[in-house]
Amino acid sequence: MEVILKEDVNKLGHRGDVVKVANGYGRNYLLPGKLAIEATAANKAVIEQMKNSAARKAVKEKAAAELQAVELSKVELSFERKVGDNDHLFGSVTSGDIAAALEAQGYEIDRRKIALEEPLKTIGEFHVPVKLFRDVTAHVKVTVNGDRPVAAATVAE
């Protein structure tokens, strides 16, 4: 199946590209997610117009993404999770949690753009990459704390 990408898709192509994909991938993921349109004769005729407007739009979006990256690099998020023995978390901090926390601070970031390889399952400080545009990535500081206060060291006399 041939599709025309409406958005950049990782490991597949950029907006405006005509790519050949498996039928199921196109029908079940790309088309319903509005990431692509079917590459029919009518749609192929429109592709040149789409590429020209996409080029103009990309310049504006990249500039906006660079500004947002500067703002996001200053953001610090803190999460508190329940912990057990040896600072083992019950639960984790996911890209959805980070997206919700960013939205609460006024940044609308899709959770799919948060490049978290796996959920954060330990206490500590992490720098999570957020892919805003093709070549623009911001890093958000995320701190995961336990729900128990750290025991103060006692000195025996």
Rank of each mutant, 00 (worst) to 15 (best):
I4M: 10
I4G: 03
L5Y: 11
K6Q: 09
E7N: 08
D8W: 05
D8F: 01
V9H: 07
N10M: 04
N10V: 06
N10T: 11
K11S: 14
K11Q: 14
K11Y: 11
K11V: 13
L12Y: 12
H14V: 11
H14K: 13
H14M: 07
R15I: 02
G16N: 02
D17W: 01
V18D: 07
V21T: 03
A22L: 15
A22S: 15
G24L: 08
G24E: 10
R27P: 13
R27N: 14
R27M: 08
R27E: 09
Y29H: 12
L30Q: 12
L31Q: 13
L31V: 09
L31S: 11
P32H: 07
G33F: 01
K34F: 00
L35P: 03
L35M: 13
A36D: 06
E38Y: 05
A39S: 14
A39N: 06
T40M: 03
T40P: 00
A41C: 01
A45S: 11
I47M: 09
M50R: 12
K51H: 00
S53V: 12
A55L: 12
K57R: 13
K60I: 15
A63N: 05
A63Y: 08
A64W: 01
L67T: 12
Q68S: 14
A69S: 12
L72C: 10
V75G: 08
E76D: 09
S78Q: 10
S78M: 05
R81G: 05
K82N: 04
V83L: 04
D87V: 08
D87W: 06
L89Y: 02
L89T: 01
F90E: 02
S95R: 14
D97Y: 07
D97W: 10
D97E: 03
A99P: 03
A99Q: 04
A101D: 02
L102C: 08
E103V: 00
E103S: 08
E103Y: 01
A104S: 05
A104D: 02
Q105A: 00
G106P: 02
Y107T: 00
E108H: 13
D110G: 14
D110F: 09
R111K: 15
R112A: 00
R112I: 00
R112S: 06
I114M: 07
A115M: 15
L120H: 01
L120S: 01
T122H: 11
I123Y: 05
G124M: 09
E125D: 05
V128T: 00
P129V: 04
P129F: 03
K131Y: 00
L132W: 04
L132Y: 06
F133A: 06
R134M: 02
D135V: 03
D135N: 15
D135T: 11
T137K: 03
V140N: 05
K141G: 00
K141N: 00
T143Y: 04
V144S: 05
V144T: 01
V144I: 08
N145K: 15
G146P: 04
G146T: 06
D147V: 15
D147T: 14
D147R: 08
D147Y: 09
V150E: 15
A151W: 05
A152E: 13
T154Y: 04
V155P: 12
V155W: 03
A156N: 14
